[in-house]
Simulated assay, not measured.
Amino acid sequence: MNKPFSSIEILGIPFANTTRDQFVNQLQKRINHHENTFVVTANPEIVMYAQKEPNYQKLILTADYISPDGIGIVRASHTLKTPLSERIPGYDIFMDLLNWASQNQKKVYFLGAKPQVIQQLKLKLTKDFPGLKLVGAHDGYFKSETEIVATIEKQQPDIIFVATGFPNQEKFIASNRHLTKGLWMGVGGSFDVFVGAVKRAPKWWQTHHLEWFYRLVTDPRRLKRQLIIPQFMWKIHQLKK
Rank of each mutant, 00 (worst) to 15 (best):
R20L: 07
Y91G: 02
H33L: 14
I66M: 10
H138M: 12
N32H: 13
Y109W: 07
E153T: 05
A174P: 02
S67V: 01
G90I: 04
T62W: 14
S190T: 00
A101G: 07
K106H: 01
L84A: 10
V117D: 08
F129I: 00
G112M: 11
K203N: 05
T218N: 13
W100H: 05
G90M: 05
F166H: 08
G196M: 14
H138R: 13
K107Y: 05
P14K: 08
W204K: 08
I229F: 11
I228P: 04
Q226S: 00
T79E: 10
Q28G: 03
K124W: 03
G182S: 03
F194M: 02
E35T: 09
D219M: 11
I160V: 15
D69A: 01
I93F: 09
D92T: 07
K122V: 14
V195E: 14
K240C: 06
A63R: 05
I31R: 07
K52C: 00
Q105A: 12
L125K: 00
L216E: 09
K133H: 03
D96E: 07
R177T: 10
V40M: 11
A50F: 08
V193A: 07
H178T: 09
Y65M: 06
S190K: 02
W204M: 12
D64A: 06
F232S: 07
M48A: 01
R200K: 00
L210A: 06
H138Q: 15
Q51A: 05
F213R: 01
G136V: 09
K235Q: 08
E86S: 08
N36F: 07
R215H: 14
A197L: 09
G182W: 09
F172Y: 14
K81E: 15
H208I: 12
L61T: 02
I148R: 14
I10K: 11
D128Y: 06
I13L: 05
L123S: 09
I160D: 09
I31C: 14
G186H: 05
T207P: 03
K240E: 11
W204P: 00
Q22V: 00
Y91I: 01
P89L: 02
D158V: 00
V47F: 11
L11Y: 07
Y141S: 08
F213L: 15
Q51P: 02
L239F: 04
